Computed example of a mutant assay.
Amino acid sequence: MKKLMLAALAAASALATSGCATVLNGTNVDYTTETNPEGATAKFTNGMECKTPCSLEMKRKTDQRVDLSYPGYKPTYVLIQSKLGGGSFGNILLGGGIGAVVDGTNGSSNRLYPRPLIVRLAKEGTADEAVLLDDKGKVVMTVEAHNDSVRVDVAKTIGAKLAGLEE
């Protein structure tokens, strides 16, 4: 009986000191990058590189910049923002402050935006701009408009120069 009570106490302690998002989501996420046309080089600030379409394991809590290039198309970059996910509020309500602190510290309650990253590149010699697409191929906004909307926040972690605030 004593062993059963100790096991129950240990299980309760583990639940009380860990965050729900940590258990459910983990601290990493598969991050998919696609371009139109396919085969662009994608270089991330964390040192990872791939040819599109590709999927890389990324930290949920880390803002990134990905530089995209493809011959005959204008090079562009997209700022990837780590945002607090909605699940963190449920964590506070249901699990209390300890779980929220754990999840907030390790980033497991965050999500990367945009995700997936789907970019239609702009041909060189045209007035076209690179645009972000949703998973159905519909234009969401220009890459420039997206970057402008997250630039100041992302600059706090990747630096003003990489975020495009300084030349």
Rank of each mutant, 00 (worst) to 15 (best):
K161D: 13
V140I: 14
L132Y: 04
M58K: 00
A7Q: 12
K83V: 15
Y73H: 09
R115L: 08
R60Q: 06
L165C: 05
G26R: 07
L133G: 11
Y113T: 09
Y113I: 03
K61C: 14
T62V: 08
A163N: 05
V102W: 03
R151N: 08
G99L: 04
Q64M: 11
D134C: 11
S108I: 02
T33N: 01
L24Y: 15
S82N: 06
M5V: 15
T17H: 12
Y113V: 10
G137K: 15
A127F: 11
N147I: 04
C54F: 03
R65N: 12
N46W: 06
A21E: 13
V152Y: 07
A127G: 09
D103G: 14
A7K: 10
L4N: 12
M1L: 09
K3T: 08
L112I: 13
H146F: 14
E124Y: 06
D128P: 06
D134H: 13
K61S: 13
E57V: 04
L84M: 15
P116H: 06
K43C: 05
L132I: 09
D30I: 00
T126H: 00
A122M: 05
A163Y: 02
Q64S: 02
E166P: 00
S18L: 11
K74I: 09
C54Q: 09
K156V: 02
D135N: 15
S88T: 11
V102K: 10
C50A: 15
I92V: 15
T27L: 11
C50P: 04
S108T: 02
D63N: 15
T27G: 05
L117P: 03
G39A: 05
C54Y: 02
N147G: 11
V150R: 06
D67F: 12
A145Q: 12
I80D: 04
K161C: 05
V140Q: 13
L56G: 00
G137N: 12
L165A: 02
V143N: 02
E167T: 07
D148K: 14
T17K: 08
V154W: 03
L112C: 05
L117R: 07
G90A: 12
T76E: 14
A8T: 09
L94H: 05
G137T: 08
A12C: 07
S149M: 10
P114T: 01
G86C: 08
V102S: 02
C20R: 03
K51W: 08
T157G: 01
G19C: 12
S55Q: 10
K138L: 12
L79K: 05
T52W: 01
S13V: 10
A100V: 11
T105C: 09
V131H: 01
K74C: 10
E166Q: 09
A160E: 12
L9N: 05
A40Y: 00
A42V: 09
S82A: 13
E38S: 06
T142Y: 02
V150L: 09
K3L: 15
V102R: 07
A130G: 11
K43D: 11
V23Q: 10
L79W: 06
L4H: 08
L9A: 15
S18D: 07
A42I: 10
P37W: 00
A122P: 02
L4Y: 11
R115N: 10
C54N: 08
K61M: 13
G72S: 06
K156Q: 12
A163I: 04
S82W: 01
K61H: 12
S149F: 08
G99F: 00
V154L: 06
G39Y: 00
E38I: 06
